[in-house]
Design a protein around this nucleic acid. Sequence first.
DNA 1: ACCTGAACACCGTTCAAGT
DNA 2: ACCTGAACACCGTTCAAGT
Lengths: 202, 202
Amino acid sequence: MSEGNYHHGDLKNALIQVGVEILAEEGLGRLSLRKVAKQAGVSHAAPYSHFKDKQALIAAISTESFKELHIQIETVFLDYKENPKDLLVETSWAYLQFALTKPDQFKLMFSSVLEKEKKYPDFVEISHLNFQQLLIVVEICQDAKILKSGQASLTAVSLWSAVHGLAMLVLEGQISSVVLEEHGLKEIFLHSLNQIALVELK
Amino acid sequence: MSEGNYHHGDLKNALIQVGVEILAEEGLGRLSLRKVAKQAGVSHAAPYSHFKDKQALIAAISTESFKELHIQIETVFLDYKENPKDLLVETSWAYLQFALTKPDQFKLMFSSVLEKEKKYPDFVEISHLNFQQLLIVVEICQDAKILKSGQASLTAVSLWSAVHGLAMLVLEGQISSVVLEEHGLKEIFLHSLNQIALVELK
DNA sequence: ACCTGAACACCGTTCAAGT
DNA sequence: ACCTGAACACCGTTCAAGT
């Protein structure tokens, strides 16, 4: 048998993986270092051989989640890059779907768990990559007259804010249930994009 | 002397107030029931006479914070209601300023601390009031041709998402520092509003 | 009705000790 | 280098007991 593939250098990644599982099964509020350790089959102090503290593990889980998000959006990007209208809708929708499908991973990613002082280079790198991806989408849409021309970085932030804000508000149950039930999420989402876009998206 | 004004029925509000102070001074991560109790001068179990559990206290602090936000925006609303262009900019800006001035209160308000099942009627009421306020702003702006006409509730959600998302991303340090330093927050904010508005806002 | 103090199960972190 | 077990300070929650 080849189980027990921890304990030879892979415990670090195993802990990250277990963390993701706990987020999916029990939620952000129930993620503890000790539980991660137990679920990975090691003592509660073992994670300290691989992570400086709980923050560092959370940064690693967050980084892993940003990579998943990036891959998901990249797939959509490749499918639609010849069609700017669909590209804008589908990549944004993929972001929203990630948030709704993996709510606690998504919350963790944006849960101010990373204190500014400390640096997590992997995290910074993947964040940068995600923003570059968004910039490219914006530039394609500007060229195709789907979005107003101008500073792409500013429009990228606006677009990100709009989609991210909607994801957060939905996740937190803040959207009035009468609005949500009357129109449905997809219509609300498209309405947001259509506030920004120069042509009718659907 | 008239200190010690707790212990005659006001402990409940004292606990909420202490909670707000801890958020300002130490942050969301350091808010504990036991610390609130100690800082209010009572035993660690005393809060349970007024709140079912930690969640209930957090719901109360959150409700209190939403009231503060509402008052702040209402003040701006009254100042600018004759001028739709400024009204949209200034009420949205007030929301963003609240988030930046009281970051940990703001995070708490949107920290998925409230589980759907449980009901906190005060919380639901103030949430509803805030959304109504936003709806009125949107309707005024639609009448003045500042915003596209159509379902006000949909546009309200779009606007809220845009401003809320920007606030969150800034608070979490997710906005690329080169973009933030090059343009400044106000320009980024105005760019977001101008993506949505029918006329140039400044 | 409101509050206290002890108790319990859980948590993050440190550290000496083992391999 | 990597992991364990004991230890410490902290946490949320419950409960019998006090006023």
